[in-house]
């Protein structure tokens, strides 16, 4: 027998004038983040355009930062190569220290810590994530630096035959290594939070099954939790990287800015685009200010790309887990 299905009913939404206005206003308001991002790019490009035009690719490859003389006898010359390299070096050091500790910390909080420790630790993580960077900076300068100097000397003593651990002169203060350690401590809370979030979503049935097969707790970590959280961890690390690249004040206080591309991480010479802006801003003339705007634009675009990648990884990891 043939079944005659009724036509699908159409649902028409008719909105009143109030609703239309409401939706319009809210939609317009929600575009604020897009507008602000576009405005940032536009203004920095507008102010820095002249510098990009004058120096072109040299702005990225030159190591010279010279405001020139007022009477024009010395031509100004701007290049951010040492600062870009320095930013990347410092952020890399920070990430490679922070991620292993974040993994241990997250595993500890999810699976190893006694129950009475877990809840308060959440608050502690939130608290240290909220400690302002200027306080990390003053602490890093006063407390961390004397210690980290000793660590740097030890590394240099035992591993000095590796090129990156060499130093031209035996001065170990204000080095990229120390800035990297300080940044590692700064970004640890955020990387740990992301990792903990991901690990806590690891499928309990699989963990139980691992135990059921006679596996140890570490066995369950290694075979279930860690592979499960891999992409989430990468996303968290990228978030930390974005923060490390953009950090200004803390790095400024513990790093010696030197306009020379330097990969020797224990030497007292490093760079950071963000700190460059903070340190030169006060005394910059109009033209140097434009160069700083251009540097700011470069920093903005780099962190934007890093964060885009990070958030798409975290989002994807979040989806596949459910």
């Amino acid at each position: 027998m043939e079944i005659i299905a009724p036509d699908k009913r159409k649902i028409a939404v008719r909105r009143g004038i109030v609703d239309k206005a409401f939706r319009g206003v809210v939609t317009a308001g929600s575009m604020i983040s897009l507008i602000v991002l576009a405005l940032i790019a536009a203004f920095l490009l507008y102010r820095g355009f002249e510098v990009f035009r004058d120096f072109g690719l040299k702005f990225f490859t030159s190591s010279k930062w010279d405001a020139g003389a007022d009477d024009g006898s010395i031509a100004p010359s701007f290049g951010v190569a040492p600062m870009l390299v320095g930013s990347v070096v410092v952020a890399t050091i920070a990430i490679s220290i922070a991620v292993p500790f974040a993994v241990v910390m997250a595993l500890f909080l999810c699976f190893y810590a006694p129950r009475f420790l877990r809840r308060p630790m959440t608050s502690v993580l939130d608290l240290v994530a909220a400690v302002p960077s200027v306080i990390y900076g003053i602490w890093g300068y006063a407390i961390l630096m004397p210690h980290a100097k000793g660590w740097a000397e030890t590394i240099n003593h035992w591993l000095g035959w590796i090129w990156i651990f060499k130093v031209p002169v035996p001065i170990f203060e204000r080095s990229p290594f120390i800035a990297g350690v300080l940044l590692a401590i700064m970004i640890l809370p955020i990387v740990t939070s992301v990792a903990r979030e991901v690990y806590s979503q690891a499928p309990q049935d699989q963990i139980d099954a691992a135990y059921g097969l006679g596996g140890t707790r570490w066995g369950a970590m290694r075979t279930v939790v860690l592979p499960f959280g891999k992409s989430g961890l990468v996303g968290g690390a990228m978030l930390g990287l974005g923060r490390a690249l953009g950090e200004t004040v803390a790095v400024y206080l513990v790093l010696n800015l030197v306009f020379k591309v330097n990969f020797q991480i224990l030497a007292s010479a490093g760079g950071s685009v963000a700190s460059l802006i903070a340190s030169r801003f006060g005394e910059a003339g109009p033209y140097e200010l434009k160069a700083l705007m251009a540097a700011g634009l470069v920093l903005f675009i780099i962190t934007l790309i890093v964060n885009f990648i990070a958030s798409s990884i975290v989002n994807r990891a979040g989806k596949s887990q459910r």
Binding site: V36, I40, R243, L245, M293, V306, N307, F308
Partner: peptide, 23 residues
């Protein structure tokens, strides 16, 4: 919108300062 909000949370604070300074 969500995506751009996330992107905005990654704007370095000094860049926000530079932007407001220039604008």
């Amino acid at each position: 919108v969500r995506f751009f909000t996330q992107a905005m949370s990654g704007v370095p604070s000094i860049v926000a300062g530079l932007f407001i300074y220039s604008m």
